[in-house]
């Protein structure tokens, strides 16, 4: 496997690829401050990326942010959807992150049991 193979991906990517990424429907922000990392934020981020790749979710983007000041609820993730309130999930692990992708992102039903704040 060579990096050069990325050219094939580029060629296969449809013309609307850049467009669809620029207009990402959902942005998921993972808290990656020291306390988040210590609490397992890396596994959460990896699980989110795995799901996005496996489900081919072209309109979902994952980014990271620093400390949020709610260290006791780490790992935390925020789901930003256009035209909707921001949903903040707390005490997330890899399994919960996968469930959030399936329920919230794909089926549009926020997983209320993990929600710590809506704003």
């Amino acid at each position: 496997m060579k990096l050069e193979d990325l050219k094939k991906i580029r060629e296969q990517a449809s013309k609307d690829m850049e467009l669809r990424q620029k207009q990402a429907r959902v942005k998921i922000v993972v808290g990656m401050g020291t306390s988040g990392i210590a609490a397992g934020a890396r596994d959460v981020l990896k699980a989110l990326l795995d799901e996005i790749a496996a489900r081919n979710l072209t309109d979902v983007m994952v980014t990271q942010t620093g400390e949020k000041g709610l260290a006791s609820h780490e790992p935390m993730i925020e789901v930003h959807e256009e035209g909707k309130d921001v949903v903040i999930y707390g005490n997330i692990d890899a399994d919960k992150a996968r469930k959030i992708i399936a329920e919230h992102i794909v089926n549009h039903n926020p997983v209320s049991e993990y929600v710590i704040e809506v704003k």
Binding site: L6, I9, Q21, A53, R55
Partner: peptide, 21 residues
Amino acid sequence: EIKGLLDGVPINSPEVIKFLT
């Protein structure tokens, strides 16, 4: 180098995540 090869296709696209994994 990777972004150069991707030539505009975002590095956070599902296909690219799969490839890099």
